[in-house]
């Protein structure tokens, strides 16, 4: 475990970009996924906020500090571009604003001290409760020269899901961005051919969003019928 990988403690030092508390992505009520009546367990009144680890204050520990410093030096608009850096479980995540994502990726690829030559693709995550930041696009980068990896995360609202394409910097993101568009509806501006890749070309909706149903059918057994997985009781 590297040092400095705990979330924001109380107070703390000044963070380069604006400090944010642990990013709340939802609130859960009750214990067993049953709402309304039917839950007699007594846990029905439970209210839990679900929060992802928040921005970490400096020093980050290990090579993370050096990387952040280099990026700050190379990128004149660092304060603008970077919303925060999260160090969690030995990994570094840089949260970037969408307008600057191509700049940041270019700097990460080209600077000799950073040299993240290989992009491991883009994927999306949908946080429906995180208003105005519902869709996250996550870029994983790998540096072959320095043998390190890094994550860059961009958050966009549902109402305006546009992110500039990274294919000019990393051609490998071509199909990955098509897949993220296919499953989440994030539109990558400037992509050479942004069409559906895994679903049929005329499929309505974006399947991996949280508001898209799993789409199963009830299964018949002898003497019973089991509902599809997304309509069963959930213990989480």
């Amino acid at each position: 475990m590297t040092e400095g990988n705990h979330g924001l403690e109380s107070g703390g030092e000044v963070v380069p970009a604006e400090a944010e508390a642990a990013e709340v992505i939802g609130v859960r009520h009750g214990m067993f996924g049953v709402h309304g009546s039917g839950d007699t367990s007594g846990y029905g009144g439970l209210v839990r906020t679900v929060a992802m680890p928040g921005a970490t204050p400096r020093p980050y520990g290990g090579w993370f500090d050096e990387a952040a410093d280099t990026l700050e030096r190379v990128l004149p608009s660092y304060g603008d571009a970077v919303e925060g850096v999260v160090i969690d479980r030995g990994e570094m995540t840089i949260h970037v604003r969408r307008e600057k994502v191509v700049e940041v990726l270019q700097a990460l690829r080209d600077d000799p001290l950073l040299r993240f030559e290989m992009s491991l693709g883009v994927s999306g995550v949908h946080y429906p409760d995180d208003t105005d930041r519902e869709l996250h696009a996550v870029y994983h980068l790998r540096s072959l020269t320095h043998n390190r990896q890094l994550r860059v995360e961009v958050a966009v609202p549902d109402a305006d899901p546009h992110i500039p394409t990274a294919t000019s910097v990393y051609p490998t993101n071509d199909w990955h961005e098509r897949e993220t568009y296919d499953f989440f509806g994030i539109i990558f501006d400037g992509h050479p051919a942004l069409t559906r890749i895994l679903m049929p070309d005329d499929w309505p909706g974006h399947p991996q969003r949280k508001d898209y149903p799993l789409g199963g059918i009830p299964v018949e057994y002898k003497g019973a019928e089991i509902p599809p997985p997304d309509q069963r009781r959930v213990y989480s």
């Binding site: 399947p207 789409g215 199963g216 059918i217």
Partner: peptide
């Protein structure tokens, strides 16, 4: 019967 994949993508 669709097997373990009871979802939108597989013909059941």
């Amino acid at each position: 019967s669709g097997g373990m994949f009871n979802n939108y993508a597989i013909v059941q």
